[in-house]
Write a protein that binds this DNA or RNA. Structure first.
Lengths: 203, 203
DNA sequence: CTCATTTTACACTGAACAGTTTACTTTTCA
DNA sequence: TGAAAAGTAAACTGTTCAGTGTAAAATGAG
């Protein structure tokens, strides 16, 4: 009995999550009432509350879910025998692709909409995001150790690269000031960033 | 009669604007009820409504007010006989200082809080902000015409510089992830940006 | 068919809040 | 002093919304 009943329950749950994801993106968390949400999910309001006892719980579930799934590791290990150019380009391109993906943008919109007036909580969550950025960090330090890159503070270089990526592939899209980026644009932006960085820091 | 009466009225109005500015920053527009606002301004709710017939009107007034006052022109004209380094540093430093000033951050917080779920309207307003960035644009084109800078698209270079500035002096502060930047940091960041850019684009 | 679980419909509570109305007070200045 | 202008306090309307309670209906397993 519990077997297929579970399945029905799970389907409803899935519908709720699905509708919430869409609605929160479109109208914002505060702009989406639980009644509206239930209607969009084709589910009774009471069922929503049976699955998530508070709105807050639903929001947090969504954010962490997406956060987790977004943590597909960006990984390029430093190679002594390959040109810096190609390696860094691959790494930056991965980051660019991730940053401007609709999935990540949607997550970010929900997160920002939710945390905008709760900076302390945001701070905590952002700390986890930082871990994901350390692949670039590792690569830079390896290049420095190998004598092919010259800089004082790797943190600063990461910041610069990160700023260049987000400034062109994340913030404008987040606020829908710019449209989605084409593959060609991604490539072009990546190449410019790599050229800029290596021109300065390659020995 | 109308002379001093105006003064009293203006004082109340000022108190409302003052309280609204603070409250909107701290709790957000939606997080600030008109009752709360009236209390904070030490003014009756009715007085608020005598000055601003709708909440929306108050919000728009605030944003445009601050927008206008923020439009202190950043201007450095290109000089043929001065080193690029010093000129660009001055220009970038001005932008950095503006970007991370509390005044600008507060404006941006209110604006983003208000426009986050109205991207179309945001787009319009942002267009006006772009005009202010053209001083850098002009400087770069002058440098190129003078043969001391080499690049294809000035727009792209502006984007890169802008990304570098905002990524380090605006976004982290906007979300209160990083504290206010010290004068030394501003100088250091400026110098790094200038070095990065000139290393690549100076002939 | 029957029993257990889950979903549904819907009415309800209680709070928050935008905006209004009214009756009253204070300030200013002529 | 007295009339005009501005402000105040507090109750009120109407709406939206989070969250609850409950009885009936749907679903599926044995």
């Amino acid at each position: 009995m519990t077997e297929t009943t579970r399945k029905r329950s799970d389907k409803k749950r899935e519908a709720i999550i699905q509708a919430a994801t869409q609605a929160f993106q479109e109208f914002g968390v505060n702009g989406t009432s639980m009644d509206k949400l239930a209607e969009l999910a084709q589910v009774s309001k009471r069922t929503v509350y049976n699955h998530f006892s508070k709105k807050e719980e639903l929001v947090m579930h969504l954010i962490k879910e997406q956060w987790k799934s977004a943590l597909v590791n960006i990984g390029v290990e430093y190679q002594h025998d390959l040109p810096l150019n190609a390696q860094l380009e691959e790494l930056v391109f991965q980051e660019v692709t991730f940053m401007c993906s609709e999935g990540h943008l949607e997550l970010a919109r929900v997160a920002i909409g939710h945390f905008f007036y709760e900076p302390e909580k945001l701070k905590d969550e952002v700390a986890q995001l930082k871990a994901q950025e350390s692949s670039l960090h590792r690569w830079l330090k390896a290049g420095k150790a190998d004598g092919r890159l010259v800089f004082d503070d790797p943190e600063q270089v990461v910041n610069e690269i990160d700023s260049l990526i987000k400034g062109q592939c994340f913030w404008p899209q987040l606020f829908k000031i710019e449209d989605t980026i084409s593959e060609d644009d991604k490539r072009r932006i990546t190449q410019n960033i790599v050229a800029l960085v290596l021109c300065r820091y390659a020995s």
